[in-house]
Simulated scan of single mutants.
Amino acid sequence: MFLIFVRGVLMGSADIVPGVSGGTIALITGIYGHLVEAISNIRFGFLKPLFKGDFDGFVNSILDEIDFKFLIPLILGIGVAFLTLAKVVTYCMDVYTAFTYAFFLGLIIASAVILFKKLNHINFKNILFALIGCILTFIFVSLNPIATNHSLLVLFISGMIAICAMILPGISGSFLLLLLGQYKYMLNALHNFHLSEIIVFVVGALIGILGFSKILNYLLKNHEEITMAFLIGVMIGSLRVPCVEIANSISINIASLFPCLIVAVIGFAIIIVLETRFDYID
């Protein structure tokens, strides 16, 4: 359970960062398939005995339907990361922008390499879906943030949308929140513990993830190769985010780029080591 908690901390840390996906961390630490299946299996069938007053049936049903041993430590880890690391990550992004995004660059490249190793075939269909994923993501991350309000309804909808990206390797839910104009607002809500905003956002996220996970689980079970190829393209397309941030933060010359390259290599190496250290959970 402790190692699942650690995975949750790593996922939560990644999800805080625009351009990095918690789904990527889930993939490289060996829990991605289990995570998607565990969420998609939640169908609220355990409520039927409760409505009939059958409390014992309710307890048995909920224990059968929800993988508490897996989900509770994972969610706790994600929550701890969100509450403790939000300030650290935002500080690094503001003060050490180039180094921080260079580190993220290494993480994303390593994640794409690991995902590529999972492909059994390199054929026209896989290459096509990888290109589609790359082009669509490149266009998506090129969009400017949307100016919008921060009403509870908007936060609810933002939670639904962002969580779908957070469980997809290569697609950053935080960047999606940035485009929706809710990223800094929700970070401040976490910093100051604004309970109403946090609860509404979390409820939207729960509804979104329960629906989307079923679609994703179907794709992974029935079209795994092209889904993985598409996600590789998504990761490659998302590299625009750290590259642009690095270019905007430093002058482009060898003296400035070399330290960033070193940091990127460190990020790359960490992901490769993580992938070899964590066992896959079926």
Rank of each mutant, 00 (worst) to 15 (best):
A102H: 07
N60T: 04
I114C: 02
P259H: 04
V141Y: 15
M235Y: 00
I66Y: 00
M1T: 15
N60E: 14
Y183H: 14
E37A: 06
I132S: 10
V20N: 02
L239V: 01
F99M: 14
A255T: 06
H223L: 15
I236R: 02
D279F: 08
Y101R: 07
A162W: 13
G181W: 07
I139Y: 15
L27F: 15
V200I: 14
N60K: 12
H223S: 07
L178C: 05
T148K: 14
N41E: 09
K52E: 15
I270W: 01
I62Y: 11
A130F: 03
M160K: 09
L155W: 10
G204S: 11
A147P: 03
A110N: 11
A112D: 12
S61R: 13
M186D: 07
G30N: 10
G33D: 12
I75Q: 06
C260P: 03
F278H: 05
G30E: 09
L176F: 04
A162T: 05
S174T: 01
F58P: 09
M93S: 00
G170Y: 10
T97L: 06
G8M: 14
M228N: 06
L50E: 07
N149T: 14
I4R: 04
I262S: 00
S196Q: 12
V80K: 01
M160I: 12
R43A: 05
V59T: 15
E197N: 13
Y185Q: 10
E37V: 01
A264M: 03
L50Q: 06
I42F: 00
G33T: 07
F44W: 01
S249M: 03
T29C: 12
G237E: 11
L115W: 00
Y280W: 06
V36T: 04
T24L: 12
P73G: 05
F104R: 09
F44L: 08
F5H: 01
D282M: 06
L76K: 01
T100P: 05
I66T: 11
D56L: 09
F230N: 03
I72S: 00
T148I: 11
F140C: 10
Y218A: 02
D67F: 00
A98E: 12
I254K: 06
V113P: 12
S21M: 10
S142V: 03
K117D: 06
Y280A: 13
A110P: 10
K52C: 04
A162R: 14
G267V: 05
Y280V: 12
I16D: 09
Y280H: 11
V244G: 08
Y218I: 01
L261S: 14
S251K: 08
V141E: 01
L261C: 08
G181S: 11
D56V: 07
S213R: 15
A86Q: 13
M228D: 07
D64R: 10
I250K: 02
N253P: 02
I4W: 02
G23C: 10
R43K: 08
I25S: 04
F193H: 14
D67V: 00
A189S: 11
L35S: 11
L136E: 06
V9E: 11
I266T: 10
L261A: 14
I167G: 09
L231N: 07
R7A: 13
I250Y: 08
N192G: 03
K221F: 01
